[in-house]
Design a protein around this nucleic acid. Structure first.
Lengths: 186, 186
DNA sequence: CCGGCGAGTATACGCCTGTTTACTTGCCGC
DNA sequence: GCGGCAAGTAAACAGGCGTATACTCGCCGG
């Protein structure tokens, strides 16, 4: 949570910008866009509030840059399509049993109030997950099936956030693999 | 959306309370807890803001009462367990292709900022969906499987909210049925 | 050694939130 | 008819939000 830099902070634009960016990343990932205030970000980065506006234009601009810099599940998506369901299942199970710290997907679920932010999130979801996933599928309604699988993925995240992490079970991966395969079946 | 009462409003505690309750129900269902303000509710109910506090204690109290009065998916859950997956699929597809107006489940997905509200939502989710669903399943980890199926259900809602309603496809029900069956398989 | 410029700061602005207070209005039993 | 109490109202409160402004400080080239 408080992953702030302990080293002395030099009077450097680039370094301060970076601290703000990383602080924002962590907070957004944990709490979502709306629950995080610029004052929280500035405090976590040990920087002044006004610098958020100066360096990123606005809170939304900062969020946008965080989103752009975030690694995606691309590594899971590429590879032979046969194993896709299992790779997704393994990835989801890993997320399911780990504590909150996790990529920006976390904030995808719950950042929806501001329409501008919603659009950012939607584009990101499409371009980073659904489209590449659909590209791995064959058949007419590949997009629709990719959407369904992504929905399952998001739903698991929502559930974990709401009810807390589940006790792991060795059957989880197998069952989830079957679920994703059912999503992908033409 | 603007399903306000057009009849003249009598100076009646019970009637005004009811109008507030219904207005809140509609708004919460459409936008979620945090995005709805008590001023919006009062305006929709054509009542004074202060009455929310007077009749329900607080915004959270009003939300709690809305939640308690909301019908659940109980009708879908009861019945022979064999057809459960298909009934769930039909229910989800119906929700998937309909415009926003929908039960309070909508707000379950995105009402999470305030811990008090979060707890309300979590309890409701457990008592109204997961537990009864698990009761229909056999096997040790029935709860875990019910959680997964519920996650799929929520994920579909999140997806629809984010990307808009999908064009219907006749295969949807079959595919979703297979997905839920995969969730339920021991 | 010092002038200037950019990094960093403190503070205030305007707005919106949920909640509360003090007040007015209208109806119902007597 | 009318007194009183409940229903309804307007306004303000305290606090939080994102953003913008005017300022000070620290460093670096000359």
């Amino acid at each position: 949570m408080e992953a702030q830099v302990t080293e002395a902070k030099p009077r450097s634009r680039a370094a301060t910008r970076q601290r703000l960016l990383e602080a924002a990343r962590g907070l957004f990932a944990e709490h979502g866009y709306e629950q995080v205030t610029v004052r929280m970000i500035a405090a976590a980065a040990e920087a002044n509030i006004a610098l958020v506006g100066r360096y990123f234009g606005s809170k939304a601009g900062l969020f946008s840059e965080v989103l752009a810099g975030e690694p995606t599940v691309a590594g899971v998506l590429e590879g032979e399509p046969e194993g896709l369901a299992r790779r997704l299942a393994e990835f989801a199970v890993a997320r399911m049993h780990s504590e909150p710290e996790s990529p920006i997907l976390r904030s995808l679920e719950r950042s929806a109030g501001d329409p501008e932010i919603r659009e950012l999130v939607r584009d990101r979801l499409r371009n980073a997950i659904i489209s590449p996933m659909a590209a791995n599928l064959t058949g007419d309604d590949a997009l629709s099936r990719a959407r369904l699988a992504t929905a399952v993925f998001l739903g698991i995240g929502t559930m974990r956030r709401l009810l807390g992490p589940e006790p792991p079970s060795p059957d989880d991966v197998d069952r989830l693999t079957a679920v994703f395969e059912a999503c992908f079946r033409p």
